[in-house]
């Protein structure tokens, strides 16, 4: 397949990236200065407590939110340059399909937005690969939540992006559907050596899908754990459970460090 032979996606390099919202005195520090490198062609999962700023970091990487400080590069390029090249794709928590467009229309729109030729075969092929052959003409309102997320993933992948960002893409579907999507869809982007960053709440999902899991503290997000997931652990249930424990331990450290008791103790 064409994408299987393409070189791996670029590294994502965040240098002292920070984000604050609002003006003093009602200022909220969402992300404390962070320096991180996401290796090209790898899948990195970001986990952390709700509202810790991990989605904000993802939006900054996507170029949707300017950092208050620091810089983000993708290889030699800025997120904006990657946007203009049509090399970025992102899946949102709700599928964010345009309700007046069919499945086919929504997937084809991404190629149009990315200034690529309208390749009906590529569109139809991608729809089939996410398991929606026969639903090309359906409207989003006629699909289940899981099917809508499949369309969203097809929309992301149809442009063959170099960078794929996933903001809890399966957060809004039920457990069983989520498990199925997690088995069926990741091979589609793993084959293409795209650089992936995924935000998730589920420790098990992070360990199952990612090559590396980064654990954040409560707001403002700071790294409290950085755990590599060896390929060998994929088929080893004991190794997986150990990794889940490791990530969970880091998560609770992140909680303890910034919880109300800890803050009182520090004062």
């Amino acid at each position: 397949m064409a994408e299987a032979m393409s070189p791996p996606g670029p590294d994502i390099i965040c240098t002292e990236v920070a984000k604050t919202f609002g003006d003093a005195p009602a200022q909220v520090e969402a992300v404390a200065p962070l320096s991180l490198t996401f290796a090209g062609g790898q899948m990195t999962a970001l986990v952390g407590p709700s509202g810790c700023g991990k989605s904000t970091l993802l939006r900054m990487i996507a170029g949707l939110e300017p950092p208050s400080e620091g810089a983000i590069r993708m290889g030699d390029e800025s997120p904006q340059a990657m946007q203009r090249k049509g090399a970025l794709a992102m899946a949102f928590q709700d599928a964010s399909l345009l309700p007046w467009r069919s499945v086919q229309g929504n997937v084809a729109l991404a190629r149009k937005l990315a200034r690529q030729d309208a390749d009906p075969d590529a569109v139809a092929g991608m729809i089939a690969r996410v398991g929606l052959a026969g639903f090309e003409q359906a409207r989003p309102a006629e699909l289940s939540g899981g099917m809508r997320q499949r369309v969203a993933i097809a929309r992301c992948l149809v442009t063959q992006p170099r960078i794929l960002l996933l903001d809890e893409p399966f957060g809004a579907v039920d457990e069983l559907t989520r498990a199925r999507l997690n088995v069926e869809l990741p091979p589609l982007w793993q084959a293409s050596a795209t650089t992936c960053v995924m935000v998730t709440h589920s420790v098990r999902e992070a360990v199952a899908l990612a090559d590396r899991v980064i654990v954040f503290s409560s707001r403002p997000a700071r790294v409290v754990g950085d755990i590599a997931v060896p390929d060998a652990s994929r088929s080893d249930r004991v190794a997986q459970l150990a990794l889940v424990d490791q990530v969970s331990a880091a998560l609770s450290r992140g909680w303890d460090e910034t919880g109300p008791e800890a803050r009182q103790a520090a004062q």
Binding site: R59, G63, L64, G86, L88, M90, D94, S96, L98
Partner: peptide
């Protein structure tokens, strides 16, 4: 329109005109 529709347009580096045609109008 939900904010993520506008995000989608910006994700591909598209400006006000595309957003107007693809999202706002419909």
């Amino acid at each position: 329109a939900p904010a993520s529709w506008f995000d989608l347009m910006r994700l591909y580096g598209r400006g006000a005109w595309t957003t107007f045609v693809q999202v706002r109008l419909m």
